[in-house]
Amino acid sequence: MIGRDLYDLRTRLRRNGIVLCYSGSMNEAVLSGIGQALKQKMAVDRAGIGIARRVFGVFVEQMQNMIRYSAERQPALPPAGTRDLRYGVIAIGQGDGGFVVEAGNLVRRADVPELRRHLEQIRDRDRRELLALYKRQLRAGLADPGSEAGVGFIEIARRASRPIEFGFVEVDEQFFFFTLRAEIRSVEPLQP
């Protein structure tokens, strides 16, 4: 029956508390559009300013990481200067405890060890250390733009309420599916 699969997907997302989900081609316009909907949703739900800014900040960095670095991509058509399309998934969950922002995209097998090491270092730092690391990486980026890679991950970790979580699922010989999850807790339960 037409619609059944999509309804099942929606039901599964709902059951997992996912209030917003996008899977497919990503570019900066997608970021803008989903970002506006997310802001409006948090305003309507009367999420506090602190939590709304954190969720939005994590969302933007997650999206921009995928737009810049997802290994699943299609080259752009002319005119020159148009960026490639990148593929990824973003899901935002909402519950009594706050929000979860989870992103997933393909990464090359060869890049997994370093990415994992980098994320482990970020995950294991406390707030104070993250702030110092953030500043250090930004400063390093001023001298050498290539060295600022990963500053988005630090931004995500700074805004998350708990240590970031991540995983790598083997897809084939070339690729792994990389997931990064950040939880943002509200101090008080959100209004229904």
Binding site: Y134, L138, V151, G152
Partner: peptide, 14 residues
């Protein structure tokens, strides 16, 4: 600024 991303943070540092 009520919000800026990490690329803008670098600009603010400059």
């Amino acid at each position: 600024l009520i919000y800026f991303n990490s690329s803008s943070a670098k600009i603010l540092m400059i």
